[in-house]
Amino acid sequence: MDYLVSVVQHLDAETGTGPREIKYGVLHLQAAAEVLLKSRLLREHWSLVFSDPARATSEKFAASDFNSCGTDAAVERLRNICGLDISKKDAAALKDLGKDRNALQHYGLTHSAEAVESRAGVVLDFLLRFLDTELLPLLDEQERDSITEDMTRVRGGLHSINAFVTERMNRLRGSELKGTTDSLLSCSVCGQWLLPSSRTAPTATSAPPT
């Protein structure tokens, strides 16, 4: 969650997103993606975070003395072992983010800032949905309480990330909001008219439309 808080801070359009902000926004978004995907694997079984689960031992896991799997392997295991429905688009966005992260780490911003930020918006949208559907429901009360403050900071800053808002709006128009234009309310979080009137107000750990 700390990585996501940093992402929201660095990609905030209201404070400006120059090359440095985009660089660290992408670096921390990639780190957040890896941690969150592996967190879900851990809920399934601790051996799944090893690069080679066949050679996993409880001693190495307890000592954090092992090589963990990469993002691509985590996605494959979440699909094939955990039965999660991760779309081709989301999987491709995660792969592209990894490439952007490597390029930024070693060479700085060499591609269009808008393109890099746009790809980051797709991954951020995916991670928020992943949190809401695959991680938050598995937390106990103490775990939920421990991340409430960070979740509030992340949710509160999403409306200022243009790439995220664009991706979220485009996806919602083609799915959840399709055919509901006559029954929408203004979202209390982002102010946009995209909250179906049958939905309740979002809480700190529940997902607002944006």
Rank of each mutant, 00 (worst) to 15 (best):
K60A: 12
Q105D: 13
A62P: 10
S186W: 01
E59D: 14
L11G: 08
H111W: 06
N170E: 15
D182P: 09
A62E: 13
A33G: 09
R55S: 15
T180S: 15
D150P: 01
L78S: 12
T152H: 07
G179W: 03
I161G: 07
T17M: 03
T200D: 15
L131T: 05
S51G: 09
L136V: 15
I161K: 02
S39H: 07
S188L: 05
M169R: 13
D100N: 15
L185R: 15
C69R: 05
L172E: 10
L42N: 13
V5H: 00
D65T: 04
R119N: 14
A91C: 07
S112L: 05
V8H: 00
P202W: 01
A103V: 13
E44M: 07
F50Y: 06
R40P: 06
L138N: 15
Q30G: 08
R79F: 06
V116R: 03
T203L: 10
R173A: 14
K38D: 10
Q142S: 14
V122M: 07
D182T: 14
F66R: 04
L195P: 07
L139R: 05
T57D: 11
S64N: 14
L195Q: 12
I86W: 02
D145M: 05
G121A: 07
R20M: 08
L109P: 08
K99G: 13
N170T: 15
S146W: 01
S68Q: 11
W193Y: 14
A204H: 13
A63K: 13
S39L: 08
V7N: 00
C190N: 04
W193N: 15
D12G: 03
T200W: 04
M151F: 05
L131I: 05
S68F: 04
C187Y: 01
A207I: 03
A33T: 08
R119Y: 03
S39N: 12
S160A: 13
S160E: 10
R171D: 11
P202V: 04
S186I: 09
S188H: 04
H45Y: 07
R144L: 14
S47G: 11
Q192G: 06
V154G: 05
I86C: 06
R101P: 06
G174S: 11
E134Q: 15
L158E: 03
R171L: 08
G108V: 01
L124M: 06
V7W: 00
I81S: 10
D72C: 04
E76C: 07
V123H: 01
I22M: 07
F164K: 06
A62C: 09
P19K: 07
R20A: 12
A120H: 00
G179H: 08
A207N: 10
M1Y: 02
N80T: 12
W193V: 12
V165N: 09
L139F: 12
R79V: 13
K89T: 13
S68I: 02
V122I: 10
Y107H: 14
N162C: 05
P202C: 09
A31F: 00
D12L: 01
V7C: 02
E167I: 02
C82F: 04
L177T: 06
L194Q: 09
H10K: 08
G121D: 04
V49D: 06
W193I: 13
V123W: 01
E117R: 10
G98Y: 00
D150I: 00
S118T: 12
